[in-house]
Amino acid sequence: MLFSGRHNKRVIHSIRCSRSFRGFSTTRRAAHLANSSNSSDEELHHFSSLASSWWDVNGPQRILHKMNLLRMDFIYSNVRKHLVLNSPGISEEEGVYIPPYNPDLLPLEIRNQILEEQEAKRDEILLENKLNVLDVGCGGGILSESLARLNFIENVKGIDLSPDVLKAAELHKTKDPLLNSSKKLTYELMGIESVPKSDEYDIITMFEMLEHVNYPAQILDEALSRVKVGGWVFLSTINRDFISWFTTILMGEHVLRIVPVGTHSLDKYINSTEIIDWLNNNKDRSSRFSVLDVKGCVYLPAYGWKFTDCSNVGNYMMAIRRDI
């Protein structure tokens, strides 16, 4: 479906018209505005339209909304896959049975039963040890909201440097009583470097944001330094856009200190291995972090996002874990 920004304006317009005869809520809104701190009616309207356009799943951010489905799958499956099902020292009867070979080799019914048991155990572990999340560059909160709805997430803090999108995120949060009534989801205007180092997280996410920052490696480093033992950094970005910053600014200017900006040819395909190399080429980092999953993904217009076998082309997602 192709909906443009123009289309979106029409929505706003039609509501404006309809509001003019809904005198009751207009007064209520005016009363509210009188005591709200230095935000003008126009400003609020601006945020509101920003929020509606950010959250119109058929609007300009549709691609991001569709991508969110895939990244939730990515986060969910990685977190679950690496749970330790049987803590050391547990007896065989108490623990969950983990066959020492591929369960697909077992008869279907037994296989299903074993896998079901394992899944139940994973649910149990997660519910007992709920995770806290820092969503860096949360934007309108597409990912933050999704994470905050999961039952094994304790809380989500979304941070961003744009006050506008954060307002939009706050406004949209009130549209879901589940999120609005619980204290699970909070937003704050700040960069990751301002998050106190003492605040450690089980999951730090940086989706579609590294390509917007000047010093991606530094930002990534800041994230790594706030991850709990056994915790995760999940990120996604675009190979081509990313390499221009990563190679030229980080690798060239800061790591190798030889290359001025613009030296690298932009038409060269960029791959995610650069982040991996960056992690591995530093003893301190490589001894504490492992890249456990990298997946390319591609947007197929009539279908949505799909994982690919190739993480070196186009968009990709990465899961970095702080070793236990």
Binding site: D56, T174, K175
Partner: peptide
């Protein structure tokens, strides 16, 4: 909400803390 009829996301009312649910 009337706009939902057009299969679009309804208007987000800019009243903080007073959700007008869609």
């Amino acid at each position: 909400p009337e706009v939902a009829a057009e299969h679009e996301l309804p208007y987000i009312d800019p009243k903080e803390g007073e959700p007008d649910l869609d």
